[in-house]
Design a protein around this nucleic acid. Sequence first.
DNA 1: ACACCGTTTTCACGGCTTTTTCACACGTCA
DNA 2: TGACGTGTGAAAAAGCCGTGAAAACGGTGT
Lengths: 116, 116
Amino acid sequence: METITAGKLEIRPAEYLAFADGQPLKLTVRELQLLTALARRADRIVTREELHEAVWGGSYTKADRSVDVYVGKLRQKLEQVSPGCSFIHTHFGFGYRLASTPEASSHPFYRSATDR
Amino acid sequence: METITAGKLEIRPAEYLAFADGQPLKLTVRELQLLTALARRADRIVTREELHEAVWGGSYTKADRSVDVYVGKLRQKLEQVSPGCSFIHTHFGFGYRLASTPEASSHPFYRSATDR
DNA sequence: ACACCGTTTTCACGGCTTTTTCACACGTCA
DNA sequence: TGACGTGTGAAAAAGCCGTGAAAACGGTGT
């Protein structure tokens, strides 16, 4: 049975289960799909287009904010379970990135939108 | 996966990553595009027109200074990461050239606008 | 059929970053 | 020196992103 691991995150898509820091996350279907898509691409910058494609399928327009909204929801729920740990980083103009490393402030390879 | 190498520069456009001297560069979208365009044409003098075409697309007029401005931004960020190394050289009246060689003061083939 | 309720989608505003444009100083060449 | 190319800071414009909230959707129980 497939298990995706990305740092403190663990996802078992087939069982609709996700854990952060060992604790279970109460996610909706979309949230789980998005988190899964991100986790499968951990530590890489992923465009909204690719995420949208992976979760919603079909075409994506710039006006479509669904990815953003769900990233927001995920952040909330992740924060709730393991406060202070930022998993999902924004890369202005590029997309998002799920970090498998706790990542203090600046990553050797990547920078978030907030650290400059 | 494509990797463009030009001396101490390494760019992976598909991952939105660029390194100078092994260190990651914090670039914006335009900056990365311009650096990529330059790197693809490393060691050649490239006109503003060609650069503008490659990055901005569409038509270019002499009054358009966007290439200049972004060359400036790139120089700053490159200087920051590997001081003393000049990557982008100005060729007065012609355009710019990204040097793959550290290039002390005078190059066998090219001279910068500053070393004569 | 209707009301209820959780989820998903869409919308709009505000804050912030990036991009573009402008103006002026400086450099280069004839 | 005069004409024009280039560097650059800063203002202006454009665009990106976080977010709350309304609207739309779908399932359940009565």
